[in-house]
Structure formats: structure tokens, C-alpha cells
């Protein structure tokens, strides 16, 4: 294995080319040129769309994710949603902390009432 790798490196050195790949610069340029920064309806729309599609995907594959009851499902979804919100804020798709936390909080409220409702249904 080591022999093979050293051969590869030797050939790469022999090619005498330089690899310049600066990924952070590429991403920064992409964000600058596409001018995606927004703090209004487009950002909210993308956030809700992403969250909803993830929710549907996870809900369909409940068994593969080993999510047995409603509590586990909501705890998992809350973690997923805070990650999505964070990434969306970081890339300035929704550059407004208030709106990210607003949508997250609304989802938390829904989760609480769904847990109470499910418990009632299971017993009755």
C-alpha cells in the first residue's frame, strides 16, 4: 500500500504541476456573485420547504431511523430543524436571526401539543 502511494506521489511530483484549490474562496465567490442574501419571504420559503421535505423524508423512514414514538420523532426533528436553520443563516439565505428562531419556536409549540394529543389518543 505504502509502496503504491509513494509511486503515486512520485508520479505527481514528476508531472511538475501545482494544484490550487481553495474551497472557501470558491464558496465565498459563489455567494458574492449570486447575491443570495435575503431576509424576507424567499428565505422563509426556502427554510420551510427544506424543513418540510426533511420532515416528510424522516417521517416516511421512521423505522430506519429507529424512531418508535412521537417524542423521539419530535426530539430528532427539533435537532434537524435547528441545524437547517443554522446552515441557512450561515449562508445568508435567511439572514435574520429573529425569523429563524420564530419558525423554530412555532415548531416547538406544535411538537408539545402533538405529544400531549398522541398520549391522549393512545390511552382512549
Amino acid at each position: 500500500m505504502a509502496n503504491n502511494l509513494s509511486e503515486v506521489f512520485n508520479t505527481l511530483n514528476a508531472m511538475n504541476t501545482t494544484f490550487e484549490f481553495n474551497s472557501t474562496e470558491i464558496i465565498a465567490n459563489a455567494i458574492n456573485y449570486s447575491n443570495v442574501q435575503s431576509d424576507n419571504w424567499i428565505g422563509i420559503f426556502i427554510f420551510i420547504l427544506l424543513g418540510l421535505s426533511l420532515f416528510i423524508f424522516i417521517n416516511k423512514n421512521k423505522n430506519n431511523f429507529k424512531l418508535n414514538n412521537d417524542l423521539q420523532m419530535s426530539l430528532f426533528m427539533l435537532n434537524v430543524l435547528i441545524d437547517v436553520g443554522f446552515i441557512i443563516y450561515q449562508f445568508r439565505i435567511l439572514a435574520n436571526v429573529q425569523l429563524v428562531i420564530f419558525i423554530y419556536t412555532a415548531f416547538v409549540g406544535l411538537c408539545v401539543f402533538s405529544v400531549i394529543q398522541k398520549d391522549k389518543e393512545e390511552v382512549n
Binding site: 419530535s74 426530539l75 427539533l78 435547528i82 443554522f86 408539545v112 405529544v115 398520549d119
Partner: peptide, 26 residues
């Protein structure tokens, strides 16, 4: 079952607190 439901609700609240603190710090 009553106590279980209340504990579930408070677990969600606790996660909410932690995630808010995390996002506000980060």
C-alpha cells in the same frame, strides 16, 4: 402515564432551552 406525559413535555422544553443557548452563543 400522566407523569410520563409531563416529563415528555419538559424534555422538549429542555432541548429548546439548550438549542436556543447554543444558537445564541454560536
Amino acid at each position: 402515564n400522566n407523569i410520563k406525559t409531563i416529563v415528555k413535555v419538559f424534555m422538549i422544553f429542555f432541548l429548546f432551552q439548550i438549542s436556543l443557548s447554543a444558537i445564541l452563543t454560536a
